[in-house]
Amino acid sequence: MKENESGGTSARRRLPPTAHLRVFEPLRAYDDAAQLVIAQQRQMPRAEIEERSALASLRRVMRHTSDPFPSPDTELYRVLHYPGPEGLTTPYFHAEQLQTRATVAAEQLDRLMRPQVLELVLPAAARTANADRTDPDAFADDLAHLHTRTSVWGVPLAWFVALREDDHLEMDEDGDVLLSVRLSAPATQVLERTKVAAASLAVNAPELDILDELTALSEWLTTFHDESIVELDYGLLAGFVWPDESPQDLRIGVDSLCEGDMVGAAAAYRRLTNRWVRVRQHARSN
């Protein structure tokens, strides 16, 4: 087993199974200040970055004083070495933007939880302290350019249109535990996939919720540098479903709808939902 700095197994194994859709941009897409921080971090292995991030999350939720908000520390940047056509790799970088994402998540909980429960999870004092240490200009800039989308105990269907099983693959293991599977592809290719699928569904199945998801995903991707790379990180969900045929099933389902093959579409959807129903059952048991 891999040991972390706290003397136990990987901290990531103690967090809820969470998938991330991330955008990695080329170095020139960042300003001089960000490039300086990237230069200091770019040699840090990806596994070390993920472990540091997980440990920090655990420390926040285990504080004696209930305050899950992060402090405004130095920005954390992941690096993805994506292979080019000649076999050489090019580095691309992802900004964690943790403080902004935590603030957005807190605002979403405000709409989902009763005030009494919210006060236990996010005390008013913690929310006020977070607001006081948040730079409004930096927050607005991040909000317009968030590099991460997150989903707990599942993967949104639109993400399976964006990334496919034959895209660039990386696996991350801790002994016999699969910590993550990561698929990545150029943003231009991902954007083309989402637009084609959205156009097909708009004609053949405009009532499906995934159409709105694809439209929102396409709009999000257009805010980044044209040469960016998009990554789907399964996180611990990989241990439940990998090898995952969800992208293929969704592709078959969309194609079947476009061809008027309702039986084929229903069969693909059944395979897809059965696979992820089992994951949701684990979520409910927790």
Results as ranks from 00 to 15, higher is better:
residue 245 E to Q: 15
residue 248 Q to H: 14
residue 236 L to T: 00
residue 212 D to S: 15
residue 251 R to N: 12
residue 240 F to G: 01
residue 210 I to Q: 07
residue 241 V to D: 03
residue 208 L to P: 11
residue 228 S to M: 01
residue 203 V to K: 13
residue 219 E to Q: 13
residue 227 E to Y: 02
residue 248 Q to A: 13
residue 207 E to W: 13
residue 231 E to H: 01
residue 240 F to N: 06
residue 218 S to V: 06
residue 242 W to F: 11
residue 216 A to N: 12
residue 235 G to A: 04
residue 245 E to N: 12
residue 207 E to M: 14
residue 217 L to I: 11
residue 240 F to W: 07
residue 205 A to Y: 06
residue 212 D to H: 15
residue 203 V to A: 13
residue 201 L to N: 02
residue 230 V to C: 05
residue 206 P to V: 11
residue 212 D to E: 15
residue 215 T to Y: 10
residue 222 T to W: 05
residue 228 S to G: 02
residue 240 F to M: 05
residue 228 S to K: 03
residue 251 R to G: 08
residue 205 A to I: 11
residue 210 I to F: 07
residue 217 L to G: 01
residue 209 D to H: 11
residue 241 V to L: 09
residue 207 E to S: 15
residue 246 S to G: 07
residue 223 T to D: 00
residue 236 L to P: 02
residue 250 L to F: 14
residue 234 Y to A: 06
residue 209 D to P: 13
residue 202 A to M: 08
residue 222 T to H: 05
residue 212 D to F: 13
residue 237 L to C: 01
residue 236 L to C: 01
residue 224 F to K: 00
residue 220 W to V: 03
residue 223 T to E: 00
residue 202 A to C: 06
residue 204 N to I: 06
residue 205 A to W: 12
residue 202 A to V: 08
residue 214 L to T: 11
residue 250 L to Y: 07
residue 226 D to C: 02
residue 232 L to D: 04
residue 215 T to W: 12
residue 214 L to W: 10
residue 201 L to P: 08
residue 220 W to Y: 02
residue 250 L to C: 07
residue 221 L to S: 05
residue 239 G to Y: 05
residue 206 P to W: 09
residue 221 L to K: 03
residue 203 V to Y: 10
